[in-house]
Every structure is written in C-alpha cells, then in structure tokens.
Amino acid sequence: MMGGSGSTSDSCIEVSGLGKSFGDVTAVDGISFTVRRGELFGFLGPNGAGKTTTINMLTGLARPDRGSLRVGGIDCTRNPKAAQHLIGVVPDESNLYPELNGFDNLCFCGGLYGMRSAERKKRASELLVLFGLEEAGKRRFAEYSRGMKRRLTIAAGIVHRPPVLFLDEPTSGIDVQSARRIRSMLGELHRSGTTVFLTTHYIEEAERMCDRVAFIVGGRIVREDSVARLLHPVMGREVVAVSVAATERIDLGGLAGAFPDYALTVEAGDVLRVESKEPVRVGALVRFLEEQGVQVTEARRKRQSLEDVFVAVTGIGAETMRKEKGGRKGA
C-alpha cells in the first residue's frame, strides 16, 4: 500500500520543527512528529495547547512561521494548499450550511472535491444511512441537534473518500451513544486503510482507538509514542487498590515495615493504593490489615490507563482534562 511520492513510503504526515505564533502568543512551539500511513494518531492536550492550530497548518488553513510539513508525501511548507486534494477535515465546530438540508450539504461538499453529480448524490444517500440521518436528510442543517450536526459534519469530511482524515475533537459535547457510533465509524475507516489524525480531550477515547498518541502542552509535544509502549512501563508494575471501611485506622508505618517492596498511598474514598514491581501478595496484605482491625471491603488489581500516563508525563490532572470535555474555553 504505497502512494504519493513521499520520501518515506511509510510516512503520511511528517512534521518537523513546526512553529506558529499569534502576536505574543506562541501557539505551536517547534513540534516534530510522524504519522505513518494507515495509522490512527491521537493528539492529546488541554485547552489552548495548540491542537487546532496544528491541524490548521496541516490542512492549509494556516501558514507555519517555521518548520516544515509534508502530507501524503507532498511538501506543504510553502504552499498550504498543495495536498488538499488528499485530505478530509472535520473541524472543531460543526460548520455546514445552515440553510441547506443534510443531503444538499453533503452533495455540495462532494462537489468541492470535484465529484460528479450522480456520484455525489449516491454517496450522500449512502452516508446519511451510515450515520443514521436518513430521516434528517431533507431537513435544514440549522434544525439539527448538536449530535446530528456533529455526525453530518463528520460525514461531510469523508464524502470524497480522502486517504487522510483530520478530526478536531470529533466527539466533544455529544451524548454517549452518538460518540460510540462515531468511534466505531472511525475504527472502520481506520481498518479500511485511512490515515486518521485526531485531536481529543478524552484520554480514554485515545487509549481505546489510537495506535499512537502525542501529548501536547503549551505548544510543545511532551511525549509521543505508541499507546502500547506508553502503557508498557506500567505493565511490568502492579497496582492494587484496596478499599477499606475506614482509612484513618491504617497504620501506614507498620504496613510499610511489613511490605517494604510496596509503594503505599492512601487515596480519597477510603482506598489504599499499593504499587509494586513484583506481583502483589493480596492475601497477605488483606490479612495484615484485618489483624490491624481494618475492615477490607474490596481488593482490586488496577490496570494502568493512558490517563495515568498522561498525568505522570504532563503533570496535568485528569480532572482538568475532564472538566474541559464540554469544550469550555479558558480558565
């Protein structure tokens, strides 16, 4: 599966030293990364991290101040529009034409990419069914609910079957079921070979879907790796959460003496968190606690999540990211 005239047949998006400022604000501060062909790549970061600015530069809506970028093997550093025939874009705002109905909106977008009339009509009907909007196809976009708007906007991004798809927070601010539907759609596109570049606040979403992710904070990439590798270091380590009736009775000192290899912390919600490189001897631990008179209600092995990694790498609390899920701007 090769195409284009890329320097590396394997890479689809190549970014090097990319930077962009707006006046005094440095939105993107010299980032470099590569997205391989057919990969589902996630761009994770808090508000104002520079995600949208990066997408804008990659898609030809913004001109980089410095650095270089190639999309599909085409150098877009000087000419932002050079690779636009290869890409589909789902912007962070659902921005179709309010006065047109769903069907006409999709046909119009197909037309922008040079699709012939019969072809785009067929494709529009097909996509309306795929996105569960066949009933809504005849209604004006202005009348759609937020989730419907989002779905149609995603449909519009893939109407011309682009080999590379950019999505800026595709599932922000919509209900769980619509989000799940969108994720499964994206999974299907990914399996059919489309290269997908996705920004999101939802760390679990990125963990579930992406092959690789980059964490971006303050315009810089602080970590970029495959999801499997990011989770790997914690795989050699075990975390057990022990729920107890009352934590104040735990004698942490005594516990640490008895289990010197474990890192012990008390978390909110009456949970004792035990981390260890060796398998945790849960039975012994529970017996020790019970002997101390602490009532154990549950002991559970915790799988380390990408969220934990994100927090560890960026120092940004998961709560902060979660709070921003609604797309709320500013502090």
């Binding site: 809506l61 921005n95 034409y97 990419y113």
Partner: peptide
C-alpha cells in the same frame, strides 16, 4: 463568521 467559509478554503481549488 459561521466558519462555513473554511470549507471553501479547505477545498483543493486555487484561491
């Protein structure tokens, strides 16, 4: 203002 214009700027046609 409605950002719909971005679609036109994203389309592979010269400005």
């Amino acid at each position: 203002k409605a950002k719909a214009f971005e679609r036109l700027l994203l389309a592979p046609i010269p400005l």
